[in-house]
Simulated scan of single mutants.
Amino acid sequence: MSDGHTPCTCVICNHGDRDRLDNFQLRTIVHITEYGWSVVLVHPDDGPGWAYTIGLWHSHGAPELAMFGGDVYEMEESLNTLGRHTADGRLPADGERRDGVVRGQAAAFRETDPLWYDAMFGGAVAFYRRPTPPMLQVVWPNGEGLFPWQPGTDLPFRHSQPWLWLPPRQHPAGVWTQRL
């Protein structure tokens, strides 16, 4: 589907290579066909985990979404809630804040710099091929409702989520830049 401006290059719209798809891609196709999107969980290993969607662009012409630094199953639940909002016509936008997304608190949407895509969203890159659709980072606040860039947040909280709206060379070195 896509946004009407850029033809979709995903593995669903380009049927030719279906026999060459791996189990991850086949499962992703089933989820997108059934629900309109799939959520990929990247479980914590040497660093925090994260989750992201694949299929919102294909099914609804909406940016894909990603969350970082929380419990992967809680992030999956939040992304599925946002996926349902998108399916109902409430597409998220860069700079938007939306109430009741994460633990009953607001979330902020920030456009991800494409230089992060290969390191953080390999499943989406493989599914869509090129060009990869826009990705919005869903940023969650601390217990006081402050976002990581706001005054009054402590350093561990500011580092709990990457700032993917910054190009990698401008992002502070740490657990997130080690993935590049």
Rank of each mutant, 00 (worst) to 15 (best):
H5P: 07
V72G: 01
R90N: 06
T53S: 14
R27Q: 12
H171L: 06
P162G: 10
D118P: 05
L65G: 04
D3L: 04
G83H: 04
D94W: 12
W50K: 08
A124W: 11
S160F: 13
G100M: 03
D99A: 13
G100N: 03
M67T: 03
E34P: 02
Q170H: 09
F24E: 14
L136F: 01
P156K: 00
P151G: 03
A173Q: 11
L146M: 15
P92V: 05
D118W: 04
I12Q: 04
Y35L: 12
V11P: 05
R98G: 09
R90S: 14
P48E: 11
R110M: 10
V101H: 08
V42E: 04
R158K: 15
M120N: 05
P141M: 06
L82T: 08
G95F: 11
V72Y: 05
D17N: 13
Y117E: 02
G100L: 03
W50S: 09
P63D: 01
R84D: 10
P131Q: 14
F157N: 03
G174E: 00
D46E: 15
L146S: 11
R18Q: 11
R20E: 12
L26H: 02
L180D: 09
T86N: 09
T28S: 09
P172T: 11
Y128W: 08
N142I: 04
V42Q: 15
L136T: 00
P151Q: 06
F147P: 11
D118T: 03
D113R: 04
S78E: 02
V102Q: 10
G70D: 07
A87F: 12
R169F: 12
L115F: 10
R179N: 10
A62M: 05
I29S: 00
R18V: 06
A107D: 01
T9E: 10
Q150V: 04
A173T: 07
D154G: 07
E96H: 10
A126I: 04
R20H: 14
W37R: 01
Y128S: 02
L79E: 00
Y128F: 02
D17H: 14
V40D: 09
D3V: 06
P148L: 07
E77D: 15
E74L: 09
V102A: 07
P44Q: 02
G83W: 08
P148E: 07
R179H: 12
H43Y: 13
W149K: 07
L136E: 00
N14Y: 14
V125L: 01
S38T: 14
I54Y: 13
A107R: 01
Q25E: 12
A119F: 08
T153L: 10
S160K: 15
I29P: 12
H60W: 14
I32Q: 06
R97F: 10
H159R: 15
R158C: 06
T33G: 10
R97H: 11
V30I: 14
S160N: 12
T177C: 02
I12F: 06
A66G: 05
A119L: 09
D118Y: 08
G89K: 01
